[in-house]
Design a protein around this nucleic acid. Structure first.
Lengths: 244, 244
DNA sequence: ACGGGCAAATTGTCAGACATTTAAATGTAA
DNA sequence: TTACATTTAAATGTCTGACAATTTGCCCGT
């Protein structure tokens, strides 16, 4: 575990990278304790603040956790699903918002990925995820719901759909796609008419999954994609017009 | 932008979180300059090293970049696709390796996601991505190839397949699934016979995409999934036996 | 045997200083 | 006037040393 003495990059970045490689390569295993900050400073021939900056970088990525006190220190962290979810969603959301990704492209990606789940979801859907979908549909039928709350419920419905596939890796990968769309969806004004159409398609999807009809679920999902696309395009067109 | 004075968590973590929220909410926009470290230290009533630790946390997530010198400082970073790719891949790889995800589950997720790409890939495949797939197939036919190099080429082939869909958001989301499988795939010993079978299926996929036959591509992909699964299960069974 | 307090180890935070880098401002010469 | 060299100011990068807060284990007295 060494750093390049004539590298001009930040020492703390180099040290963080060196330790990260040890973790990724499996030479530092989960729950293993790293040397103390003083020992690391000695090893890399830098000061303690520099080591600390490196450790904070790793902590920000959930690669390590720290504990104070005797027998405390920095430990290799077991990356949990919730932590990974959070990081993935933050990154995906920022990637979309900062790179002016079009509504069309984001929408296409999201629905393509969701369609990938439907065969598995139809096979394995549980009473639990079905109940969640029904509950969200019911929420979406409430007339007093704000657009934002409607969107949030929409995300919850789609997450339940993805979770129905019963594959945590799939759920993790799709969390980014589904959640990252929310800011874009939030720009849409949902009329009573469009809400009705969406709720109808959600119901068709839930019914299809309950009846284990993968094809029907995919068809409804595709219709929902087409409908969402028209809603999004209307918003974008209106925005473009008000700008120009 | 404030921090809770009676929060027992690390000050640097609180400060990083406060700034991150400003960025995610869009109140700090891309390329905007943050106050200098001294000013931030003053604002949050902490010392400069504490502020620096917070900034390093944000830098580790590519949320900010720093520049030295006059008119330097910390700037909100535009999250680029390559940066997001890297973070996503690291997180996905560690998530799989640290949570003892079974070969079956990872394999199922990966191929389900790839199948989601094939309709779009058949529609939009470019000469460029087709050439990449052909080149990787050719590489995979070389007899002297190590198992590791074969795996790396396999990943490159599948990435080209995903990129064929021409949707950068889709490519980004799938990068994690495809790359994170590599360590698991690296445990497999590829015999000449199994390599031949895989190359054959790769060729069928490339041919199908070139002929814009989405159905045929999906069928070949499903066969590849089934074959990969048997290879993986053999390895896992052998491992379990040597252990017990 | 049990509980309380003490010591040690470790991270968290602070203060101040110096080094390094960068770009703008300034000065100088052709 | 223009081009180039120098100075200067501002900012991050790094170091040193110190103290605070926290946690654990151990010793000691009851």
């Amino acid at each position: 575990m060494k750093i390049d003495p004539d590298n001009r990059a930040d020492l703390s970045a180099q040290i963080a990278e060196a330790i990260r490689e040890e973790i990724v390569a499996g030479r530092l295993i989960v729950d293993e304790r790293l040397p103390s900050e003083a020992e690391l400073a000695d090893h890399f021939a830098v000061s303690r603040p520099t080591v600390r900056e490196a450790l904070k970088r790793l902590a920000a990525q959930s690669l390590i956790r720290t504990a104070r006190g005797a027998f405390g220190g920095a430990f290799v962290n077991r990356l949990s699903y919730p932590e990974a979810y959070g990081q993935h969603i933050t990154t995906s959301t920022l990637l979309l918002s900062m790179n002016s990704v079009s509504f069309d492209v984001a929408c296409e990606a999201r629905y393509a990925l969701e369609r990938a789940c439907t065969p598995l979801a139809a096979l394995r859907r549980s009473p639990d995820t079905l109940a969640t979908m029904r509950a969200e549909i019911h929420r979406q039928e409430q007339p007093g719901l704000t657009d934002e709350a409607f969107c949030a419920s929409d995300v919850a419905f789609h997450r339940a759909l993805v979770d129905s596939a019963g594959n945590p890796v799939l759920s993790y990968q799709l969390a980014g796609a589904v959640e990252a769309m929310q800011p874009l969806m939030n720009m849409i004004t949902f009329t009573a008419r469009s809400r009705g159409a969406i709720v109808g398609l959600h119901t068709r999807i839930a019914d299809a999954l309950e009846g284990q009809a993968a094809e029907a679920a995919q068809a409804a999902l595709s219709e929902l994609e087409a409908y969402t696309l028209t809603l999004g395009r209307d918003v974008m067109a209106a925005r473009a017009q008000s700008k120009g």
